[in-house]
């Protein structure tokens, strides 16, 4: 069995700071991490491999430094890592990204066999669109199962998979054929630590690095900025509210008095709540 997992290296957005004057992102020194949502997919892929045999290939499209994210995946136990990097990819939106990744995956198939499953993260924390996965599926003409809460059944012989998919108001139990593309919901599993051997292997292994040409991408006009139908016209900071919060006086007052003052303030500002709460009360 062969599973391909798409991961992305992202800035740890908890630590992103915006330059107060220029409104630009201060990237210097911001640590990068593997997109947290991708780890749930990677772990699920590793579990399937452990149970059914085969190989897990992790892939990413990104700058050369994204190799550290791939190496980390090897230390978790992935078998192979491929980095697609080229200046032509700069400025890719989701459509251009899925174009490049679909080619990358096609080339991976040529070299190491067509994947039975492809995993993507539910979404990234920087792009945050949740669109690249469905985009790849469409480009490779694969079926897709997104927001998977649980893999209920995986039958490699029959080439079938049954999953629990999160939908509005409940769970869809869906069955489809392999090959297909999955995205896992967060919290569905815990990323393993990786064995000592994996750690050593990960540290020593070479990250296979391809350019656009290596991946067989002939039409560069479909890559990067040029291949992106969307363009970012402007970037700006959210406007601050004009005034700060009105503060309820607390000095020398009892909690009871503070509470009464707060309730009065709430009901003055939102008179309709008074009626609604009365209705709630009447329903007791």
């Amino acid at each position: 069995m062969h599973i391909v997992v798409c991961i992305k290296q992202v800035p740890d957005s908890a630590q992103i700071r915006v330059h107060p004057v220029t409104n630009t992102i201060m990237r210097q020194g911001v640590p990068t991490i593997i997109n947290p949502y991708d780890l749930f997919s990677l772990e699920e892929a590793l579990r399937l491999r452990d149970r059914h045999g085969g190989e897990v290939t992790v892939v990413t499209m990104g700058p050369p430094m994204a190799d550290t994210a791939l190496r980390k995946c090897l230390t978790f136990g992935a078998d192979r890592a491929v980095l697609l990097t080229d200046r032509f990819f700069a400025g890719s939106d989701t459509l251009a990204t899925s174009y490049a990744l679909a080619h990358l995956i096609a080339k991976v198939s040529e070299n190491w066999g067509a994947p039975d499953l492809i995993f993507c993260g539910k979404q990234t924390i920087d792009g945050d669109t949740a669109q690249v996965g469905p985009g790849i599926a469409k480009r490779l003409n694969l079926l897709q199962l997104t927001y998977v809460a649980k893999i209920e059944n995986f039958d490699l012989e029959a080439r079938e998979i049954t999953v629990h998919r999160r939908a509005e108001g409940g769970i869809q139990v869906l069955k489809t054929k392999l090959p297909c593309l999955l995205t896992m919901l967060e919290g569905t599993n815990d990323m393993r630590r990786g064995t000592m051997q994996d750690a050593l292997r990960g540290a020593r292994s070479e990250i296979i690095t391809w350019s656009a040409a290596d991946a067989g991408i002939a039409d560069l006009t479909l890559c990067g900025l040029r291949g992106s139908p969307t363009i970012v016209k402007k970037v700006f900071a959210p406007t601050a509210r004009d005034e700060k919060a009105f503060q309820i006086k607390v000095a020398d007052k009892s909690m009871g008095d503070i509470s009464e003052a707060l309730i009065a303030e709430i009901l003055t500002r939102q008179p309709v709540l008074d009626q609604e709460l009365t209705k709630t009360a009447a329903g007791f």
Partner: peptide, 23 residues
């Protein structure tokens, strides 16, 4: 931008090769 909308929008936009701005 629900599970349904996001699942569908990415597929439709890619099929039509058009731009999609999420969320």
């Amino acid at each position: 931008a629900t599970n349904l909308g996001r699942d569908l929008a990415g597929s439709v936009a890619t099929t039509l090769l058009t731009g999609l701005t999420a969320d």
